[in-house]
C-alpha cells in the first residue's frame, strides 16, 4: 500500500513528507511505548508506525529504526518541534482523528499486516 492510500483510508492530515506519498508500505506496528517499538528489530523502512505519543521521542525512535512513515492517532496535533524533527529526518508525519484500534483495523482490513516477532524470518 502506498503512503497516500494510508492517508486517504484514515482521512489523515499530512504535516510533513509530501515526497513520501508514493512510497510503498508493507506492514505496520502500533504502540505508545517506544521501548516496545525499539524491541522490534524486524521493523524496517517499509513499516508505518502508528502511535499516540505526541513528543520528539516518537520521531527519535523512528529515526533510530530507519522508519519513514508515522501516523499519530486520537486526533492529536503534533507539537511544532515534533513536526520539525520529522522534517529534518525525512519522515512523513500524518494525524488522524481515529483511535489506534480503528486506525489499525482499517489498515489491516486493506491488507496491511502487522510486523511482528511471529514472522517466519
Amino acid at each position: 500500500m502506498k503512503v497516500h492510500e494510508i492517508r486517504e483510508l484514515l482521512n489523515a492530515k499530512l504535516y510533513v513528507g509530501e515526497g513520501l506519498l508514493d512510497k510503498e508500505i508493507i506492514g505496520a506496528y502500533a504502540s505508545d511505548l517506544m521501548s516496545d517499538v525499539l524491541a522490534s528489530n524486524y521493523l524496517d523502512e517499509k513499516a508505518v508506525l502508528v502511535s499516540g505519543l505526541n513528543n520528539v521521542q516518537l520521531i527519535r525512535t523512528a529515526e533510530m529504526l530507519d522508519l519513514s512513515v508515522i501516523v499519530l492517532v486520537r486526533g492529536k496535533t503534533p507539537h511544532p518541534e515534533v513536526v520539525e524533527m520529522a522534517r529534518e529526518n525525512g519522515i512523513a508525519l500524518m494525524t488522524t482523528t481515529l483511535n489506534m484500534y480503528n486506525s489499525c483495523g482499517i489498515l489491516y482490513a486493506q491488507g496491511v499486516k502487522g510486523f511482528s516477532n511471529e514472522r517466519a524470518d
Binding site: D32, L33, M34, S35, A39, N41, S51, N55, Q57, L58
Partner: peptide, 17 residues
Amino acid sequence: RELGFGAGMGLPNIKKY
C-alpha cells in the same frame, strides 16, 4: 513514562542488539 519509556524493555533491548 510520558516520554514513551518505562516499558521495562531498555536493558533487555540493549542486550538483544
